[in-house]
Computed example of a mutant assay.
Amino acid sequence: MNEHMNYGEDYKFIPMTSILSMVGQVVVPDIYCYTIQVVNICFIGDPSKNTGWTLIDAGMPKSANAIIQEAENRFGPNTKPDAILLTHGHFDHIGAIIELINHWNVPVYAHKNEIPYLTGQMNYANPDPTVGGGLVARMSPIFPNDAISLGNYVQPLPEDGSVPNLKDWKWLHTPGHSPGHVSFFRESDQSLIVGDAFVTVKQESLYRVLMQEKELSGPPKYLTTDWDKAWESVKKLEALKPAVAITGHGIPMSGEELAQSLTRLATNFDQLAIPKQGRYLN
Score class of each variant (00 low, 15 high):
Gly218Ser: 08
Thr225Cys: 07
His88Thr: 09
Ile14Val: 15
Asn282Ala: 09
Val194Gly: 03
Asp10Glu: 11
Gly24Ser: 15
Met60Val: 15
Ser140Met: 03
Tyr280Ala: 11
Ile41Trp: 04
Met16Gln: 04
His88Ala: 12
Glu159His: 06
Leu265Asn: 05
Cys42Leu: 10
Asp189Ala: 02
Thr225Leu: 07
Val163Leu: 00
Leu265Val: 06
Pro77Met: 00
Tyr117Pro: 05
Asp189Lys: 00
Leu258Pro: 01
Val26Gln: 14
Gln203Gly: 07
Leu192Cys: 03
Arg186Gln: 03
Tyr109Ala: 04
Ile56Met: 12
Gln121Phe: 05
Ala197Ser: 15
Gly24Thr: 13
His90Val: 14
Leu166Ala: 03
Asn50Tyr: 00
Asp160Met: 10
Glu187Met: 05
Ala243Gly: 12
Glu114Val: 11
Asn40Gly: 07
Asp160Thr: 04
Asp92Gly: 13
Leu258Gln: 06
Met16Thr: 09
Pro242His: 07
Lys276Pro: 02
Phe75Thr: 01
Val39Arg: 14
Ser63Asp: 06
Glu257Phe: 04
Asn126Glu: 14
Lys202Tyr: 15
Phe91Lys: 01
Met22Val: 02
Ser233Asp: 06
Ile274Thr: 09
Ala266Phe: 04
Pro15Tyr: 07
Val244Thr: 12
Ala137Lys: 02
Val23Asn: 10
Leu223Tyr: 14
Gly176Lys: 14
Trp231Asp: 11
Leu118Trp: 13
Asp46Ser: 02
Tyr222Gln: 13
Ile193Lys: 00
Ile36Arg: 04
Leu206Gln: 09
Gly218Cys: 05
Arg279Met: 15
Ile142Ser: 14
Pro158Phe: 14
Leu135Tyr: 01
His173Ala: 12
Gly120Val: 07
Thr224Arg: 07
Arg186Trp: 00
Leu272Phe: 04
Val244Phe: 07
His93Leu: 15
Thr51Pro: 00
Gly76Thr: 01
Asp160Ala: 11
Thr267Asn: 06
Ala243Ser: 13
Leu272Ala: 02
Val136Trp: 03
Glu213His: 14
His4Leu: 06
Thr87Val: 14
Glu3Leu: 12
Met22Tyr: 02
Ile19Cys: 10
Ala64Thr: 09
Val28Phe: 06
Ile251Asn: 08
Leu281Arg: 13
Lys236Ala: 04
Gln37Met: 05
Leu223Ser: 08
Asn50Ala: 06
Ala96Cys: 09
Thr79Leu: 07
Ile148Tyr: 06
Ile84Leu: 09
Gly161Val: 01
Pro15Cys: 02
Pro29His: 03
Leu135Ala: 08
Cys42Glu: 13
Asn73Ser: 08
Ser63Trp: 09
Gln190Arg: 14
Pro116Tyr: 11
Glu9Gln: 03
Gln25Glu: 13
Phe198Lys: 06
Glu257Met: 04
Pro77Lys: 15
Lys214Met: 14
Thr247Asp: 02
Phe198Val: 13
Ile246Phe: 10
Lys49Cys: 00
Ile98Trp: 13
Val106His: 01
Glu257Ala: 10
Gly133Pro: 11
Gly59Ile: 06
Asp168Ala: 01
Ser178Ile: 00
Ser178Ala: 07
Pro47Trp: 00
Val234Asp: 10
Ile101Ala: 04
Ser191Tyr: 01
Arg279Tyr: 01
